[in-house]
Design a binder for these strands. Sequence first.
DNA 1: GCATTCATACTCGGATATACTCTGTCCGAGTTCTGCAGG
DNA 2: CCTGCAGAACTCGGACAGAGTATATCCGAGTATGAATGC
Lengths: 157, 157
Amino acid sequence: MKLSGGVEWAVHCCVVLSRAEGPVPATRLAEFHGISRTYLAKHLQQLSRAGLVSSTEGRVGGYALTRPADAITLLDVVQAIDGREPAFRCTEIRQNGPLPASPQACRKACGVARAMHAAEQAWRDSLKAVTVADLAAGVEHDVGPDTFVRVREWLGS
Amino acid sequence: MKLSGGVEWAVHCCVVLSRAEGPVPATRLAEFHGISRTYLAKHLQQLSRAGLVSSTEGRVGGYALTRPADAITLLDVVQAIDGREPAFRCTEIRQNGPLPASPQACRKACGVARAMHAAEQAWRDSLKAVTVADLAAGVEHDVGPDTFVRVREWLGS
DNA sequence: GCATTCATACTCGGATATACTCTGTCCGAGTTCTGCAGG
DNA sequence: CCTGCAGAACTCGGACAGAGTATATCCGAGTATGAATGC
């Protein structure tokens, strides 16, 4: 089980956007994080399709959050990049072979699938409890109170 | 985020093994579930390396659980097949770019990574709470009390 | 009748191709700013 | 001095290759069984 590497980029970008003033172009975000510009653009497109960020074209265009940072959960960002499909996909092998489970018994989901899905639900619940605003506050606490002031200055330059 | 498809096979095989009497060869397990024999063998090897099952060669060989079914958690099986590495891998992009985080601040793990790892821990905790014995009991309850009697009969034939 | 030997059939284990998804990149469409010409 | 227009620069968006991993497969190494043989 491996999460797309772009998730990390997207989350950090959302944190920066939450404290930025105007739209921030993808090029700026890529430079700021020292990562590939073109590949980051691909992930920002996914965020745009998911409705988390809005994109404005033109000379002073860029990306901006569509909602307040405390209304965007970590789960929203992860699902926007990595997809909404569950990690475990039941193929109903219990219906195969010489002793298949009866269709009547298969009304209920397979016990294995239920346990796996419950675990994924716990994972989603944990991600859902954290917002982009929380993460931004955490960065401010860890790195320093004036962090985003300097970030805004650099973005404006 | 996609889990290896072999996880489902491995879990179901462990459930069968938990109620089998002697060693069960991979060919039998594959036939029983209607899946590829050779590919299942690969996953059984992974279970063997992880120490969950023991393999005996020879004419009446096969696989058997090394521990009681209530001492094998779903997490054990999943990690044996899918690996023990976390899905989210922090690349410390906060240290890149024109405004890198100070090494002092990086003593602590990145807030994003902390949140992601906490979610994965919740996932693991959920999987750890379910044992192979629980799953077998669930199958018995869903499909019928005499399920594993018939399974043993078929395995013996 | 019993012990020994040998061939056999069956098992697991690792090494080997293939398909697919993720990663990374490029170029085109669209929009806004800016400079300039005209009134 | 103000207005309208044209050019240019910068932006996003989708279409296009390459690499890595999961999937699927095959063949060789090893072992217990069972029969055949000699005593």
